[in-house]
Amino acid sequence: MDLTTDYMGMKLRSPLVPSASPLTGDIDNIVWMEDAGAAAVVLPSLFEEQLSMESYELHHHLTYGTESFPESLTYFPEPENFRLGPDEYLELIYKAKQKVKIPLIASLNGSSLDGWTDYARMLEQAGAAALELNIYSVQTDPDKTSDQIEQSYINMFQVVKAAVAIPVSVKLSAYFTNMANIAKRFDQAGVDALVLFNRFYQPDINLETLEVQPHVLLSTPQAMRLPLRWIAILYHRIHADLAATSGIHTAHDVLKMLMAGANITMLCAVLLRHGINHLRCIEQEMREWMEKHEYESVKQLQGSMSQKNCPNPSAFERAQYMRALQTYKPEWGRIYEPSYYHG
């Protein structure tokens, strides 16, 4: 059975790729992942603030004025030390490259042009097979238009793409007015792949300490519906490859993403919960399902349930929305009619 797939010009043994996480920042784990069947590995994100002096400016704005009233002295958290600095990140790539044969995809996380190009070249020289731009930016300026924001992302990609010879993907959030349009614009700009989607981790407020604190919730299988929908819409409408991420926990999730049109599926939360060896279970279950349903290859699956032959995807999506609402029945039984209610 042929599980191979193509991604950004690389031929991979399967569509199973561990995504950026604390697990992928350790050389022993990367070796373990290759042994367990990972086709490639995305390294943890290297943040823009690690490459410039902007972290000091960020700290200034976070702490400015807090001494004005005692109850807010500890409201904003001190910036924590990054686990991997720029030099350590380069060393990770270089040393891991000596121990594994699978492609190592470096990840850069930022929101401006500063510091990206020089370091992108260094990542390439250290041995990264490809680069993933993880664009994370929460826009708070009410005077900035959506077109200005989107064009800044395109510009950022183009600058990095021009600086390196290795493939470059972009990891996007789902919060665009027209996802199809921004995908097309990146495609026209020459992006090698789109990774759908980035997850925004929303902070929380600790009522006891009066501090804003990070709150990380690992994805659940329900999260896969959003990338599943958009990959099915974009498949064969853009030339760039498509990587599915978020909510992929089982072999069935992987198979659905492939049928929608994904080239690869990225795994994170499931490996954090169940361990790296769980890759073996997912691959084995994939093989069993494909054999049972007489599929001989991943490429035979890919895009088979996409919307490439649908003349009007918008009408299709609206029809599915209406169908879902009109056919739903509550699990607990009958819906009460107005006459059953008593004031």
Rank of each mutant, 00 (worst) to 15 (best):
P44Q: 04
P15T: 05
D6Y: 09
Y89C: 00
P311E: 10
A189T: 05
G115I: 03
F200S: 14
L267M: 06
T5I: 08
I182V: 05
Y64P: 06
H60L: 08
F69S: 11
S304F: 05
H278P: 03
D187I: 01
Y328F: 14
Y295P: 02
G110Y: 00
L228D: 01
Y7N: 07
R185H: 01
A183E: 03
K161L: 01
L226I: 14
G275D: 12
Q284A: 15
P313M: 02
N277A: 15
I248H: 02
A38E: 03
D192C: 00
V254G: 09
Y64H: 10
V138N: 12
N81W: 09
N181G: 09
C268T: 15
P330F: 06
K329V: 09
I248L: 04
N178H: 10
I166W: 00
Q202W: 13
G261T: 01
A96V: 00
N29K: 02
G333M: 00
G110M: 01
K184A: 09
S52L: 07
N81K: 14
H252Y: 12
W289S: 11
L133H: 02
V100A: 07
M286T: 07
G343C: 08
A260E: 06
Q151M: 11
Y235P: 05
R13A: 06
S219N: 06
V41G: 07
S314K: 10
H239L: 10
V254M: 02
Q125G: 00
T140F: 06
A260V: 02
S306D: 05
T66I: 14
M322W: 15
G247S: 06
Q202H: 13
A260C: 04
L12H: 02
T245I: 15
W289Q: 13
L51I: 03
D192Y: 02
S246D: 07
E331P: 09
E54N: 10
E67W: 07
D35G: 05
D253L: 05
L210A: 07
R225D: 11
Y119R: 01
Y89M: 00
F186Y: 13
N277I: 08
D241N: 12
A240H: 01
D26R: 05
A251P: 14
M53S: 06
Q213L: 06
Y75D: 06
S246H: 08
M156Y: 12
L84D: 04
Y64W: 09
G190Q: 07
L46H: 00
S306P: 06
I105M: 04
P77K: 11
E283Y: 02
S52E: 04
I105F: 00
L12G: 00
F69C: 08
E296M: 10
T265V: 15
G110I: 01
